[in-house]
Structure formats: structure tokens, C-alpha cells
């Protein structure tokens, strides 16, 4: 029985945290957000240099849990980049019979980049910069589509850390990796839900930590405001939302890795729950900070915007709750 992080898993997460936090200070995030780019090659290469691009490859000794730990840190620092699509593309290609070794190597090392397109969605992250799109559609299967075969229309993106573009892809573009009824199609769709839940977990924890730190340092009425019970209890509730939910993400990742019968449902529950919590945490964080939290410069809005994106991306909490109810046989 083991249901907490091993030293090795904690070390993976620390390594990612060190690398991404180095690259994505608030100052750097401001510069990126005020620029035109939807991708940052330097930080991407640094992340990929850790060798985690292949974390979902079947022979890697790691799995969705480790992938979730990576995505959690990306959510924590609000890192740009098409991380979810990239990690899933490796899983997809590696699980194919007669797989393309060169492509797999390029995806694993991150020299070729892939963004996820959720079936039915008209948007994709980093679409102007990636080489390929991984289209995951429960109803139509999984396809890999070259950027040249997609129509990409830039928009003024609300999530400034991971700018999205409008993307149009014909249903027969690129080539099919898995048909709709292939088990990998549903598994990839489920894995995507868990990774977005992990990003939400990291972000929700981050804004909670920021709020707690601010409450210890900011003084009013001659006291650190964190001493006042009204705020203290709000912060306690933020933590009460976030910390127990961590185990929900772990379980969903573990269930996927172990291919447990409730893996699909656990993924739906984690996506719905964490994305709800992320929105609530970022709202509470702005409230806990007062005026400074409402400024552009302080930066809380990066997580606020990312929370709004995560909530709608791959389907809203209500949609996944409806699926979870169905999957429970109610």
C-alpha cells in the first residue's frame, strides 16, 4: 500500500519546479504576455532537457502520475507551452503498432511540438508555433495533423500564459492514429482530463500560497491582516478546497496507470472538481489581496485567466459530472 509521492516522484517534481520557476518569474511572464508570441522556445527546451517529454511512453517506467506532477508545476508557475498535447502525443505514437521511431524521438525530445485539439473544440494552445496537432475526439478517434493542414486564425487570447488560436481542421486531415472504438482513444481523452486537472491543482495551490504569504506580510490596523479571523477563515477554506483535492488527482492518475475499471470516471471527476476549485481559488485570491490583487502588475490575473480557460477546455465541470453520473450507472 503506497498512496503518497515516492522520493523519486517528489524529486521529478522538484526538478521541473526548479527549471520552470527559473524561466517564468513574474517579470518574464509580463514580458511574454505583452508580446506577440504564443510559445517560448527557450523555456520549452529547458523543460524538455530534463528528459520528461517521454514520461508517458510505455517503456519509460513512469506514467500519468508523473505526467500529472509535471503539469501541476506548469500550472503553478503558469508556464507557456503545449505540454498536455506533447505528452499525450508521445503516448499515442508509442502505443501504435509499427510506430515511427524518428517521429517518436522528435516528440520525446521536444524538437517537434504538438498541441492538443479536443474533439469539437475550435481552439488550440500555441497553435501558431506548433508543428502538429493531436486531435482527440471520443466520437471520431485520434488523428495527428500537420500544422500546414490546419487553418489557424489568431485571436486576442484571454489566457495570456498559454495564448490560444482558433483552429479549423478537416475531419479527414492528417492521418488516423486510433479509430473511435480503439481503447486508446478513450484513454487519451481521459488522460487529457487528468493533466488539465493537475494544471488546475498547481494553479489553485499557487494562488492559495500567494494569498497566505500576502496575509502574513500586509498590515492594516497595525496588524498583519492574516491575524483577522474573517480573512483567516477564508484562507483556511481555500486550503480546504485545494489540499484534499490533490489526492483526487493522484487517484485519477493512478487509476489510469493501473487501468482500473473506474479510471474513466475518476478522470471525469477530477477534471470537474479541480477546475471548479481553481476558479473558486483564483476568485478568493483576488478578494484576499484587496486592491493589489486587482492590478495587472501583481499578476494574479494570469492564474485567474488560466482557471477560466481550464474550466471550459475539454468540457465544463457540468459536462463531466453528467458523464460521471452516467458512468456510475445512475
Amino acid at each position: 500500500m503506497h498512496f503518497h509521492l515516492t522520493e523519486e516522484q517528489a524529486a521529478i517534481q522538484e526538478a521541473v519546479r526548479g527549471t520552470l520557476a527559473d524561466h517564468w518569474s513574474l517579470e518574464r511572464l509580463h514580458v511574454f504576455a505583452d508580446g506577440d508570441a504564443d510559445f517560448d522556445r527557450g523555456s520549452w527546451e529547458a523543460l524538455m532537457a530534463l528528459g520528461l517529454g517521454g514520461v508517458l511512453a510505455p517503456d519509460s517506467g513512469t506514467g500519468l502520475l508523473e505526467a500529472a506532477l509535471v503539469c501541476e508545476v506548469a500550472g503553478e508557475v503558469a508556464a507557456p507551452g503545449p505540454l498536455v498535447g506533447q505528452l499525450l502525443a508521445v503516448a499515442a505514437i508509442a502505443h501504435r503498432d509499427g510506430r515511427d521511431a524518428d517521429l517518436l524521438e522528435a516528440l520525446t525530445s521536444g524538437t517537434k511540438t504538438v498541441s492538443l485539439v479536443h474533439g469539437g473544440s475550435s481552439y488550440a494552445l500555441c497553435a501558431r508555433s506548433v508543428d502538429q496537432f493531436l486531435v482527440v475526439d471520443r466520437a471520431r478517434g485520434v488523428r495527428l495533423v500537420g500544422a500546414a493542414d490546419a487553418t489557424i486564425e489568431p485571436v486576442r487570447a484571454s489566457d495570456r500564459s498559454r495564448p490560444a488560436s482558433r483552429v479549423e481542421i478537416a475531419t479527414d486531415a492528417g492521418y488516423s492514429l486510433f479509430a473511435a472504438d480503439h481503447p486508446m482513444t478513450a484513454r487519451l481523452a481521459d488522460a487529457a482530463l487528468v493533466l488539465v486537472a493537475a494544471d488546475a491543482l498547481g494553479g489553485a495551490q499557487k494562488v492559495t500560497d500567494m494569498s497566505v504569504a500576502y496575509a502574513k506580510e500586509r498590515e492594516q490596523f497595525g496588524q498583519p491582516i492574516g491575524r483577522f479571523q474573517g480573512l483567516k477563515h477564508q484562507l483556511a477554506h481555500m486550503a480546504l478546497d485545494v489540499e484534499p483535492a490533490r489526492a483526487l488527482v493522484w487517484y485519477a492518475a493512478y487509476a489510469w496507470d493501473a487501468d482500473l475499471p473506474d479510471a474513466a470516471r475518476a478522470a471525469a471527476m477530477a477534471k470537474a472538481h479541480l477546475c471548479d476549485i481553481y476558479v473558486r481559488a483564483t476568485r478568493a485570491a483576488v478578494a484576499a489581496h484587496g486592491g493589489i490583487g486587482y492590478t495587472w502588475e501583481y499578476g494574479l490575473h494570469y492564474w485567474f485567466r488560466r482557471a477560466a480557460f481550464n474550466r471550459a477546455w475539454l468540457g465544463s465541470p457540468a459536462e463531466h459530472r453528467a458523464r460521471a453520473a452516467e458512468l456510475a450507472g445512475w
Binding site: E243, P244, A245, M269, A272, D276, A318, R321, A324, A325
Partner: peptide, 17 residues
Amino acid sequence: RDKLTQIEGFVLSHRYS
């Protein structure tokens, strides 16, 4: 169904924690 699953998100968080 929505309310039940919403509550269940917390029930499962409690269980796995």
C-alpha cells in the same frame, strides 16, 4: 445528478486523502 456528483467530488477527495 449534477449536485450528487459535485458532492461526490468532495467525498472522494476525503476518501483518497
